[in-house]
């Protein structure tokens, strides 16, 4: 039942190539998934600004259009306002925890360096070890990098808070009961019955194609995230055959192989959206000219638009908060490793210092 503890051990060059490959892979996945999400956000924004699909459902002029009711239900299901308020409240704590670990780590280096300098001043050239300041440069550079990343995260937190501030009233409205929601939407006398008209059918078909497209994107995103490939064998073979690893070439060709088709499917999806939205815009113009609009209908439409975009913002804010919470927790792991590196080197320097002191006091 022997398991070789060193089974996974690989030469340094392979280890470094593996981590660079995983960086390239992460960037590829982020780019593909990011462009899909960005396109979906754009699509939702355009539809909300045209008050679609609500305008097609809103024939009675006073009840809550079905799509708005569905959006309200989905927000309540996801925990409503409270769930995002709680996540927003947690952000400062997560930030402080990370900052403290970083500050403590750098303080260790500073304190040890101060003592090293004092002893160098006291013993002059007899204190002949490398100055701590020189030794700690790489760690301090890494520390500065973490500080920079934390500063960016603070800005991201603020973006999320502002986004929440801009939409929380409307989100709160969506979380209310259907009666309260209905009462809050100005009613307007029923629009001329457009039920059977061709333009409503065209718009409906376009909207269902857009929904289908968005659903396909969810599966596409899962597939893209599920791709895995173990590069260690090809890196090991390259090292064995050529004595060196052309990481870039090997990684890029593998990434192209793994994600080439996905890239095409993403581009196709983006292109389809452009086409469909173009048609939606033109059909919507016909639709608007057909239905009579007056102050009342405009007022009602404005509130419906705000409710639709409040739902989209709720989804976006929830994604941002999930991303932010994950970011801070992942960063804590990395900072704890950094802290260990700092305490290790400081411990080694202290041991070395005590020995040097002993020698000097004896001589």
């Amino acid at each position: 039942k022997f398991t070789d503890l060193f089974e996974k051990m690989v030469p340094m060059a392979v280890q470094q190539s593996m981590s660079i490959y995983s960086q390239r892979k992460a960037e590829t996945v982020n780019r593909l998934v990011g462009s899909l999400r960005e396109a979906t956000n754009l699509c939702n924004g355009v539809l909300a600004s045209l008050n679609l699909p609500a305008a097609l459902e809103d024939l009675s002029g006073d009840s809550v259009p079905q799509s708005i009711a569905e959006k309200a239900r989905s927000i309540v299901q996801q925990g409503g306002l409270q769930s995002i308020e709680q996540l927003i409240k947690d952000l400062p704590e997560l930030l402080t925890r990370n900052r403290e670990i970083l500050d403590e780590s750098l303080k260790m280096l500073d304190d040890e360096e101060t003592t090293d300098n004092e002893l160098r001043a006291k013993f002059n050239q007899r204190w002949n070890r490398t100055p701590s300041g020189d030794l700690y440069k790489p760690l301090r550079a890494e520390g500065a990098n973490f500080r920079n990343v934390l500063d960016k995260a603070v800005q991201a937190d603020q973006v999320v808070r502002d986004r929440y501030g801009a939409h929380c009233d409307m989100i709160a409205l969506l979380c209310k009961s259907e009666d309260e929601l209905s009462a809050a939407i100005p009613s307007a006398n029923p629009t001329k019955t457009l039920q059977g008209s061709e333009v409503v059918n065209v718009l409906r078909s376009l909207l269902s194609q857009l929904d289908e497209m968005k659903k396909e994107r969810d599966t596409l995103e899962e597939e893209i995230k599920a791709v895995t490939f173990d590069m260690s064998t090809s890196f090991l073979t390259a090292l064995a055959q050529d004595g060196a690893i052309n990481e870039e070439q090997l990684s890029l060709s593998q990434l192209d192989q793994s994600y080439g088709t996905y890239n095409q499917r993403v581009q196709a999806s983006l292109h389809m959206q452009e086409e469909l939205l173009g048609k939606v815009q033109t059909s919507h113009q016909d639709f608007s000219s057909l239905k009579q609009s007056n102050a009342e209908t405009n007022q009602r439409e404005e509130v419906l638009k705000k409710l639709a975009s409040a739902h989209d913002s709720y989804v976006e804010i929830s994604n941002n908060l999930r991303e932010g919470t994950k970011f801070y927790n992942d960063l804590t792991e990395i900072l704890l490793k950094f802290q260990n590196k700092c305490s290790d080197i400081v411990f080694a320097r202290k041991t070395e210092r005590d020995e040097l002191l002993k020698d000097l006091q004896q001589s």
């Binding site: 981590s19 960037e27 990343v149 960016k152 995260a153 991303e323 970011f327």
Partner: peptide, 16 residues
């Protein structure tokens, strides 16, 4: 994405 990427921070630099 809104938050910075941690990918390049994960690379463990070995101190000689």
């Amino acid at each position: 994405s809104l938050y910075p990427s941690l990918e390049d921070l994960k690379v463990d630099k070995v101190i000689r």
